[in-house]
Amino acid sequence: MPQPLAAKQTLLAAMVLDGQIIDADLVMGAIDQWLAAAGSDPTTAWHKRQNTWEIEPWLELLPFTTRPDAVFDGLTKVKAFYGRDWTQRWERVLTAVAAVPDAAGIALLTSLARAHKDIADEHAWMQAILNRGTLESVLLYVDLFIERILGTEPHGADAWHVGRQLAKYAQSLPELKPHLRRRYETVGNGLGRTMLEHFFGEAASDEDLLAMVKKYAANSQAYDGQMARAVEAVAVDKVPVAEGSNSYSIYPAPVGSLRKALFDLLNGSPTEATIAKRCLEAIDKLRDEHGIAANDTRHPDVMSERPWPPDVEIS
Protein backbone atom coordinates (compact mmCIF):
# COMPACT_ATOMS: atom_id res chain seq x y z
CA MET A 1 0.00 0.00 0.00
CA PRO A 2 1.60 3.30 -1.08
CA GLN A 3 0.70 5.06 2.15
CA PRO A 4 2.77 6.52 5.03
CA LEU A 5 3.60 4.22 7.91
CA ALA A 6 1.22 6.01 10.25
CA ALA A 7 -1.69 5.45 7.89
CA LYS A 8 -0.88 1.76 7.56
CA GLN A 9 -0.67 1.39 11.32
CA THR A 10 -4.12 2.91 11.80
CA LEU A 11 -5.62 0.54 9.23
CA LEU A 12 -3.95 -2.51 10.76
CA ALA A 13 -5.06 -1.46 14.25
CA ALA A 14 -8.64 -1.24 12.99
CA MET A 15 -8.32 -4.74 11.53
CA VAL A 16 -7.04 -6.09 14.86
CA LEU A 17 -9.91 -4.45 16.73
CA ASP A 18 -12.22 -6.16 14.24
CA GLY A 19 -10.79 -9.51 15.35
CA GLN A 20 -8.56 -10.20 12.34
CA ILE A 21 -5.10 -11.74 12.51
CA ILE A 22 -2.62 -9.64 10.56
CA ASP A 23 0.64 -10.56 8.84
CA ALA A 24 3.61 -10.52 11.23
CA ASP A 25 6.10 -9.88 8.43
CA LEU A 26 4.21 -6.73 7.43
CA VAL A 27 4.41 -5.32 10.97
CA MET A 28 8.05 -6.34 11.48
CA GLY A 29 8.88 -4.79 8.11
CA ALA A 30 7.33 -1.50 9.24
CA ILE A 31 9.36 -1.62 12.46
CA ASP A 32 12.56 -2.28 10.52
CA GLN A 33 11.72 0.59 8.16
CA TRP A 34 11.15 2.95 11.09
CA LEU A 35 14.44 1.91 12.71
CA ALA A 36 16.33 2.42 9.47
CA ALA A 37 14.87 5.90 9.01
CA ALA A 38 15.38 6.81 12.67
CA GLY A 39 19.03 5.81 12.66
CA SER A 40 19.99 7.43 9.39
CA ASP A 41 20.70 10.85 10.88
CA PRO A 42 21.91 11.75 14.42
CA THR A 43 19.43 14.60 14.74
CA THR A 44 16.55 12.42 13.60
CA ALA A 45 17.63 9.67 15.98
CA TRP A 46 17.78 12.15 18.85
CA HIS A 47 14.21 13.30 18.16
CA LYS A 48 12.95 9.73 17.84
CA ARG A 49 14.45 8.80 21.21
CA GLN A 50 12.55 11.59 22.96
CA ASN A 51 9.37 9.53 23.00
CA THR A 52 7.81 6.30 21.78
CA TRP A 53 4.53 7.46 20.25
CA GLU A 54 5.55 6.57 16.68
CA ILE A 55 6.93 3.06 17.20
CA GLU A 56 5.01 1.70 20.20
CA PRO A 57 1.72 1.38 18.28
CA TRP A 58 3.52 -0.99 15.88
CA LEU A 59 4.90 -3.08 18.74
CA GLU A 60 1.50 -3.48 20.34
CA LEU A 61 0.15 -4.96 17.08
CA LEU A 62 2.59 -7.87 17.13
CA PRO A 63 0.72 -10.06 19.67
CA PHE A 64 -2.21 -10.15 17.24
CA THR A 65 -0.27 -11.25 14.18
CA THR A 66 0.40 -14.60 12.58
CA ARG A 67 3.45 -14.88 14.89
CA PRO A 68 2.52 -13.40 18.29
CA ASP A 69 5.97 -14.19 19.72
CA ALA A 70 7.43 -11.72 17.17
CA VAL A 71 6.76 -9.16 19.90
CA PHE A 72 9.98 -10.34 21.58
CA ASP A 73 12.08 -9.68 18.48
CA GLY A 74 10.38 -6.34 17.95
CA LEU A 75 11.01 -5.23 21.52
CA THR A 76 14.64 -6.37 21.39
CA LYS A 77 15.30 -4.35 18.23
CA VAL A 78 13.56 -1.21 19.40
CA LYS A 79 15.07 -1.31 22.89
CA ALA A 80 18.52 -1.65 21.32
CA PHE A 81 17.86 1.51 19.31
CA TYR A 82 16.91 3.49 22.41
CA GLY A 83 19.84 2.10 24.39
CA ARG A 84 20.57 2.33 28.08
CA ASP A 85 20.70 6.12 28.16
CA TRP A 86 17.23 6.44 26.64
CA THR A 87 15.48 3.60 28.44
CA GLN A 88 11.72 3.71 27.98
CA ARG A 89 8.74 1.95 29.48
CA TRP A 90 6.55 -0.01 27.06
CA GLU A 91 3.40 -0.49 29.12
CA ARG A 92 1.14 -0.39 26.07
CA VAL A 93 2.93 -3.48 24.76
CA LEU A 94 2.36 -5.24 28.10
CA THR A 95 -1.32 -4.29 27.96
CA ALA A 96 -1.58 -5.67 24.43
CA VAL A 97 0.03 -8.99 25.38
CA ALA A 98 -2.24 -9.24 28.43
CA ALA A 99 -5.25 -8.94 26.12
CA VAL A 100 -4.34 -12.07 24.14
CA PRO A 101 -6.96 -14.62 25.23
CA ASP A 102 -6.78 -18.15 26.63
CA ALA A 103 -3.67 -20.27 27.10
CA ALA A 104 -1.82 -18.49 24.31
CA GLY A 105 -2.08 -15.24 26.24
CA ILE A 106 -0.79 -16.81 29.46
CA ALA A 107 2.17 -18.36 27.61
CA LEU A 108 3.00 -15.05 25.94
CA LEU A 109 2.74 -13.14 29.23
CA THR A 110 5.01 -15.67 30.95
CA SER A 111 7.67 -15.38 28.26
CA LEU A 112 7.38 -11.59 28.21
CA ALA A 113 7.96 -11.37 31.98
CA ARG A 114 11.05 -13.53 31.74
CA ALA A 115 12.54 -11.78 28.69
CA HIS A 116 11.38 -8.16 29.04
CA LYS A 117 10.34 -7.52 32.63
CA ASP A 118 11.74 -3.99 32.40
CA ILE A 119 9.05 -2.75 29.99
CA ALA A 120 6.73 -1.73 32.85
CA ASP A 121 6.77 -1.09 36.58
CA GLU A 122 5.68 -3.67 39.16
CA HIS A 123 2.18 -2.26 39.61
CA ALA A 124 1.54 -2.28 35.85
CA TRP A 125 2.61 -5.94 35.69
CA MET A 126 0.35 -6.88 38.60
CA GLN A 127 -2.60 -5.04 37.11
CA ALA A 128 -2.08 -6.45 33.61
CA ILE A 129 -1.84 -10.06 34.79
CA LEU A 130 -4.42 -10.09 37.58
CA ASN A 131 -7.00 -8.13 35.57
CA ARG A 132 -7.36 -11.12 33.25
CA GLY A 133 -9.33 -12.50 36.20
CA THR A 134 -8.74 -16.18 35.52
CA LEU A 135 -7.28 -18.88 37.75
CA GLU A 136 -4.36 -19.30 35.36
CA SER A 137 -3.51 -15.59 35.36
CA VAL A 138 -3.64 -15.28 39.16
CA LEU A 139 -1.41 -18.34 39.58
CA LEU A 140 0.97 -16.95 36.94
CA TYR A 141 1.41 -13.78 38.97
CA VAL A 142 1.89 -15.77 42.18
CA ASP A 143 4.54 -17.96 40.57
CA LEU A 144 6.40 -15.00 39.09
CA PHE A 145 6.36 -13.32 42.51
CA ILE A 146 7.60 -16.47 44.26
CA GLU A 147 10.39 -16.84 41.68
CA ARG A 148 11.37 -13.18 42.29
CA ILE A 149 10.85 -12.28 38.65
CA LEU A 150 8.24 -9.78 39.81
CA GLY A 151 8.05 -8.01 43.16
CA THR A 152 11.69 -6.91 43.30
CA GLU A 153 11.43 -3.15 42.77
CA PRO A 154 12.04 -1.05 45.92
CA HIS A 155 8.71 0.74 45.55
CA GLY A 156 6.89 -2.04 43.74
CA ALA A 157 4.11 -4.35 44.87
CA ASP A 158 5.13 -5.73 48.26
CA ALA A 159 4.12 -9.04 49.85
CA TRP A 160 1.38 -7.46 51.98
CA HIS A 161 -0.20 -5.66 49.03
CA VAL A 162 -0.13 -8.75 46.82
CA GLY A 163 -1.63 -10.91 49.58
CA ARG A 164 -4.56 -8.52 49.93
CA GLN A 165 -5.08 -8.49 46.17
CA LEU A 166 -5.17 -12.28 46.08
CA ALA A 167 -7.84 -12.35 48.78
CA LYS A 168 -10.21 -10.50 46.45
CA TYR A 169 -9.78 -13.16 43.78
CA ALA A 170 -10.35 -15.98 46.28
CA GLN A 171 -13.98 -14.87 46.50
CA SER A 172 -14.63 -15.20 42.76
CA LEU A 173 -12.27 -18.14 42.16
CA PRO A 174 -13.01 -20.75 44.86
CA GLU A 175 -10.58 -23.20 43.25
CA LEU A 176 -7.72 -20.76 43.90
CA LYS A 177 -7.19 -21.58 47.58
CA PRO A 178 -6.06 -25.22 47.17
CA HIS A 179 -3.51 -24.15 44.56
CA LEU A 180 -2.11 -21.44 46.82
CA ARG A 181 -1.93 -23.83 49.78
CA ARG A 182 0.03 -26.37 47.74
CA ARG A 183 2.48 -23.65 46.77
CA TYR A 184 2.77 -22.61 50.40
CA GLU A 185 3.58 -26.13 51.50
CA THR A 186 6.56 -26.30 49.14
CA VAL A 187 7.79 -22.68 49.10
CA GLY A 188 10.98 -21.80 50.93
CA ASN A 189 11.42 -18.98 53.40
CA GLY A 190 11.32 -15.62 51.67
CA LEU A 191 8.94 -13.04 50.24
CA GLY A 192 6.92 -15.68 48.41
CA ARG A 193 6.07 -17.37 51.70
CA THR A 194 5.39 -13.99 53.34
CA MET A 195 3.03 -13.04 50.51
CA LEU A 196 1.03 -16.27 50.93
CA GLU A 197 0.85 -15.81 54.69
CA HIS A 198 -0.54 -12.30 54.16
CA PHE A 199 -3.14 -13.91 51.91
CA PHE A 200 -4.01 -16.39 54.68
CA GLY A 201 -4.36 -13.43 57.04
CA GLU A 202 -7.16 -12.19 54.80
CA ALA A 203 -8.86 -15.37 53.61
CA ALA A 204 -7.49 -18.48 55.35
CA SER A 205 -9.36 -21.77 55.40
CA ASP A 206 -8.98 -24.49 58.04
CA GLU A 207 -6.47 -26.30 55.85
CA ASP A 208 -4.46 -23.11 55.31
CA LEU A 209 -4.08 -22.51 59.04
CA LEU A 210 -3.02 -26.10 59.66
CA ALA A 211 -0.45 -25.77 56.86
CA MET A 212 0.88 -22.65 58.59
CA VAL A 213 1.16 -24.50 61.90
CA LYS A 214 3.20 -27.24 60.27
CA LYS A 215 5.39 -24.73 58.40
CA TYR A 216 6.03 -22.73 61.56
CA ALA A 217 6.86 -25.88 63.50
CA ALA A 218 9.23 -27.14 60.80
CA ASN A 219 11.08 -23.81 61.00
CA SER A 220 10.99 -23.68 64.83
CA GLN A 221 9.05 -20.44 64.47
CA ALA A 222 6.87 -19.20 67.29
CA TYR A 223 3.21 -18.17 67.05
CA ASP A 224 3.15 -14.54 65.91
CA GLY A 225 0.91 -11.74 64.71
CA GLN A 226 0.74 -13.13 61.18
CA MET A 227 -0.65 -16.44 62.43
CA ALA A 228 -3.01 -14.56 64.74
CA ARG A 229 -4.47 -12.82 61.68
CA ALA A 230 -4.92 -16.16 59.94
CA VAL A 231 -6.70 -17.53 63.04
CA GLU A 232 -9.08 -14.57 62.98
CA ALA A 233 -9.69 -15.02 59.24
CA VAL A 234 -10.80 -18.60 59.91
CA ALA A 235 -12.72 -18.07 63.15
CA VAL A 236 -14.91 -15.10 62.22
CA ASP A 237 -16.98 -14.13 59.21
CA LYS A 238 -16.90 -10.44 58.26
CA VAL A 239 -19.96 -9.39 56.28
CA PRO A 240 -20.10 -5.83 54.84
CA VAL A 241 -23.06 -3.91 56.25
CA ALA A 242 -23.75 -2.69 52.70
CA GLU A 243 -22.33 -3.30 49.25
CA GLY A 244 -18.97 -1.56 48.91
CA SER A 245 -18.93 -0.60 52.60
CA ASN A 246 -15.79 -0.69 54.74
CA SER A 247 -17.87 -1.47 57.83
CA TYR A 248 -18.57 -5.09 58.72
CA SER A 249 -20.85 -7.16 60.86
CA ILE A 250 -18.84 -9.93 62.54
CA TYR A 251 -20.25 -13.42 63.13
CA PRO A 252 -18.66 -16.57 64.53
CA ALA A 253 -17.59 -19.07 61.87
CA PRO A 254 -17.87 -22.84 62.38
CA VAL A 255 -14.49 -24.11 63.59
CA GLY A 256 -15.39 -27.52 65.03
CA SER A 257 -13.23 -29.59 62.68
CA LEU A 258 -10.37 -27.11 62.90
CA ARG A 259 -10.35 -27.12 66.71
CA LYS A 260 -10.34 -30.93 66.73
CA ALA A 261 -7.38 -31.01 64.31
CA LEU A 262 -5.48 -28.48 66.43
CA PHE A 263 -6.35 -30.43 69.57
CA ASP A 264 -4.88 -33.57 67.99
CA LEU A 265 -1.66 -31.64 67.34
CA LEU A 266 -1.24 -31.21 71.09
CA ASN A 267 0.10 -34.78 70.95
CA GLY A 268 2.57 -33.89 68.19
CA SER A 269 6.06 -32.47 68.46
CA PRO A 270 6.66 -29.93 71.25
CA THR A 271 6.81 -27.07 68.74
CA GLU A 272 3.61 -28.15 67.00
CA ALA A 273 1.87 -28.59 70.34
CA THR A 274 2.89 -25.12 71.51
CA ILE A 275 1.67 -23.41 68.34
CA ALA A 276 -1.55 -25.44 68.22
CA LYS A 277 -2.29 -24.50 71.85
CA ARG A 278 -1.84 -20.82 71.07
CA CYS A 279 -4.20 -21.15 68.09
CA LEU A 280 -6.83 -22.86 70.23
CA GLU A 281 -6.53 -20.18 72.88
CA ALA A 282 -6.87 -17.44 70.26
CA ILE A 283 -9.99 -19.11 68.83
CA ASP A 284 -11.49 -19.38 72.33
CA LYS A 285 -10.90 -15.68 72.88
CA LEU A 286 -12.63 -14.85 69.59
CA ARG A 287 -15.54 -17.11 70.57
CA ASP A 288 -15.81 -15.23 73.87
CA GLU A 289 -16.03 -11.96 71.93
CA HIS A 290 -18.29 -12.97 69.06
CA GLY A 291 -20.11 -16.09 70.21
CA ILE A 292 -20.02 -19.72 69.14
CA ALA A 293 -21.28 -20.92 65.77
CA ALA A 294 -24.27 -23.25 65.70
CA ASN A 295 -23.41 -26.92 66.29
CA ASP A 296 -19.88 -26.08 67.52
CA THR A 297 -19.01 -27.66 70.85
CA ARG A 298 -17.20 -26.03 73.75
CA HIS A 299 -14.61 -28.81 73.97
CA PRO A 300 -12.48 -29.42 70.86
CA ASP A 301 -12.84 -33.21 71.12
CA VAL A 302 -14.90 -34.37 74.07
CA MET A 303 -14.52 -38.04 73.10
CA SER A 304 -10.76 -37.81 73.71
CA GLU A 305 -11.42 -37.53 77.45
CA ARG A 306 -8.57 -35.04 77.68
CA PRO A 307 -9.22 -31.69 79.35
CA TRP A 308 -9.45 -28.37 77.59
CA PRO A 309 -8.04 -25.98 78.64
CA PRO A 310 -5.22 -28.33 79.66
CA ASP A 311 -5.14 -27.06 83.25
CA VAL A 312 -8.81 -27.91 83.87
CA GLU A 313 -9.37 -30.82 86.22
CA ILE A 314 -11.77 -33.53 85.03
CA SER A 315 -13.92 -34.56 87.97
Rank of each mutant, 00 (worst) to 15 (best):
M1Y: 06
P4D: 05
L12G: 02
V16A: 01
G19P: 15
I21P: 05
I22V: 12
D23W: 10
V27Y: 01
M28K: 09
G29L: 00
I31F: 05
D32F: 09
L35P: 05
A38I: 08
S40N: 11
D41E: 08
A45W: 13
K48F: 13
R49L: 03
R49Y: 06
T52M: 12
W53S: 11
P57Q: 08
W58K: 02
L61S: 02
R67V: 14
V71F: 04
F72H: 15
D73C: 10
K79I: 15
A80F: 14
Y82I: 07
W86P: 01
T87Q: 15
W90E: 00
T95V: 07
P101I: 07
A104Y: 10
A104N: 12
T110Y: 06
S111F: 08
S111L: 15
L112Q: 00
R114S: 11
H116K: 07
K117V: 13
I119L: 00
A120V: 04
D121F: 11
A124R: 10
W125R: 02
W125E: 00
M126C: 10
L130C: 01
R132M: 06
L135H: 07
V138M: 02
V142C: 03
V142H: 00
D143L: 02
F145E: 02
F145M: 04
E153A: 14
P154I: 06
D158H: 07
A159L: 00
A159S: 08
G163L: 03
G163A: 01
Q165N: 08
A167K: 01
A167T: 07
Y169Q: 05
P178V: 03
H179I: 00
R181W: 11
E185W: 07
T186L: 00
G188N: 06
G190E: 06
L191D: 09
G192E: 02
H198S: 00
H198G: 00
S205R: 09
S205G: 14
K214Y: 12
K215I: 12
D224N: 08
D224Y: 08
M227P: 01
R229M: 05
R229H: 06
A233V: 07
A235H: 03
K238C: 10
E243Q: 11
G244Q: 09
G244K: 10
N246V: 11
N246S: 12
N246D: 13
S247C: 10
Y248M: 01
I250C: 05
P254L: 07
L258G: 00
K260F: 09
K260Y: 09
A261S: 12
F263D: 02
L266E: 09
S269L: 08
T271E: 10
T271C: 06
T271Q: 12
E272D: 13
K277Q: 14
L280M: 09
E281N: 08
I283E: 01
I283L: 01
E289Y: 12
E289S: 14
E289I: 15
G291H: 04
N295V: 12
E305Y: 15
P307A: 15
P307N: 10
D311P: 03
V312Y: 14
V312K: 14
E313V: 15
S315W: 14
S315Y: 14
